[in-house]
Design a protein around this nucleic acid. Structure first.
Lengths: 190, 190
DNA sequence: ACCTGAACACCGTTCAAGT
DNA sequence: ACCTGAACACCGTTCAAGT
């Protein structure tokens, strides 16, 4: 009985600590700190380094936790795009969603480009995103609006590439994202 | 007189040491070490760390020195492409050269994507590459084979993006580079 | 002049000791 | 059970001391 009462309390506390670490990490990202040092996050969140590692066994795990919300939102947008009546518009919407999500959340860009996942949840999100993309691709192929030699994973990789192209500008041109997206959409036509 | 004789000797020695450090760095890259720790390179090259820093004041400077040869080769290929009679083929050749160079030399990929240069030589190579690309672009625009809203720097950024897309694959598909390049070439048409 | 490598600061990661 | 933070290893960078 004591355990039953203690457990939720512990979990609630643990969740609060976890949220504090993620908030601290986000603040550092927002402040331009790309490195996200584990020690520094722990100090900023007021916890020991060990607690940091207990919640996030690797930097990749931390990144995936930071990106989880954006990733889920992207999956939702992808599903909406997949059901769109106009398949061509749906495909463009999927690509735009993938690009915008990465540009507004650098941790998502990193996770989408990563060769491997640290958290099972991320793998699941990836599966869901891939499934939505595949549904859309199948419809698009049937409608003849997309090249036949492109897979759902190709779309992911290409959008990671467009993100990289947008980011690799010295002086940032606000029109770049739109133009590059358009180039990609046109290039995917059969 | 003594100075006149000593100088070249020192320079020759310095050049040999420099070459040894670059060779050590290249070996580490070839062995899969992406980090290129300055201390480790110095030890592998049999020199003190200070010597490392005297020749390469920053990691970026080291990267640019590593990439210099590939970069010069790319500029040469770009110039050839710019003079090609068939403008469309020339543009495709330029993009292929940019992609192949980056894929075969990761340090070049890094330098081409970098927001700023550490060495004046690199800036000069960048200028030459940009000039060749612009000559080709002007001809291509006049011939109506390329979108009007694309600059020479856009081409660079897009090819850095394609490189990133090719690299961000889990299982590497040998057909990816060719397909992504084709998508880009088609997307650039007006 | 040029080089060496000890030294300092910093970060990743672990784990014994606390509660 | 969970947390803390000292401790160790490693890397970037500098600079006093050597030649």
């Amino acid at each position: 009985m004591a355990a039953l009462r203690a457990d939720p309390a512990l979990r609630a506390d643990s969740a609060r600590v976890r949220a504090r670490m993620l908030a601290a990490a986000r603040e550092m990202l927002a402040a331009g700190d790309q490195d996200l040092p584990m020690n520094a996050i722990a100090k900023a969140a007021g916890v020991g380094v060990g607690t940091m590692y207990r919640h996030f066994p690797s930097r990749q795990a931390l990144l995936e936790s930071l990106a989880a919300e954006s990733y889920a939102a992207l999956v939702a947008r992808a599903r909406t795009a997949a059901e769109q009546e106009d398949v061509g518009a749906g495909l463009a919407a999927l690509l735009r969603a993938a690009l915008e999500s990465q540009l507004s959340d650098p941790s998502l860009a990193s996770v989408l480009s990563a060769p491997a996942h640290a958290c099972a949840e991320t793998t699941e999100l990836g599966r869901e995103l891939g499934a939505a993309a595949l549904r859309l691709l199948d419809r698009a192929r049937a409608a003849g609006v997309v090249r036949a030699d492109v897979s759902a994973d190709d779309l992911r990789r290409l959008m990671c590439g467009v993100q990289h192209a947008v980011r690799s500008g010295g002086a940032d041109d606000p029109t770049a994202a739109g133009r590059y997206l358009d180039i990609m959409v046109r290039g995917l036509r059969p």
